[in-house]
Amino acid sequence: MAATAQESSKGDTKKENIFAFKGFNVSADIFGCAYRLIGNSISGEASIDANLGHWLFPVVEVGYGSTNVTNSDNGIHYTAAAPYYRVGVNYNFLHKWGAKPADSYPYLAARFAWTNVKYNVDAPPLIDPIWGSEVPLTLDGVRGTALWAEVGVGVNVKIWKNFRMGWSVRYKLRIKDSKANNSNISYIPGYGNNTGSTFGGTYNLIYEIPINRK
């Protein structure tokens, strides 16, 4: 039996499927490009979500991130690049059943994300403090996998006709990262530096494709 909610506008008692499909939103994240201005990483991202009853938005996000950085303290040069993927939902927590859909709404976001990254390391040789020998360390094309979860808040605002924009801030929690025989992943595309947790953000330009505006 389908879940329903009371349609209370104009006093009628018509029941509506609370998961009724209302349309799509396609969007592009431009916040990742701004990382280049403040760091050595850059990413681009596109997403599509389905509007279910104006309150629940299952979403798929696909992006590509890369970094090219040298640590001036230890001289290590690290490059990495890979696509990343997220699936999850946005929840419009101010949605009123039976009311007209809001032009703008806040939402809670939850995501599960993963990437399979390829990275290269060019490090100065390791110097044995006792024997004095030097051992080189250069890694090419090492592959690693990372899984993480994201939760956060965001807003989606109507700008003009079907054009919208929005932003979100997210707390990211690493679930798992693979370790190669002789290295760890240092930068995870879509996540950031490989720490146990971190924050991130998105700034989206959105185009709404309505199917049913009710």
């Binding site: 640590n71 490090a123 390791l126 360390l137």
Partner: peptide, 15 residues
Amino acid sequence: TNTPYFISLSCGTGM
């Protein structure tokens, strides 16, 4: 055996 190891960009390398 000896394995030179890349720990992280900030922590560096180790053997």
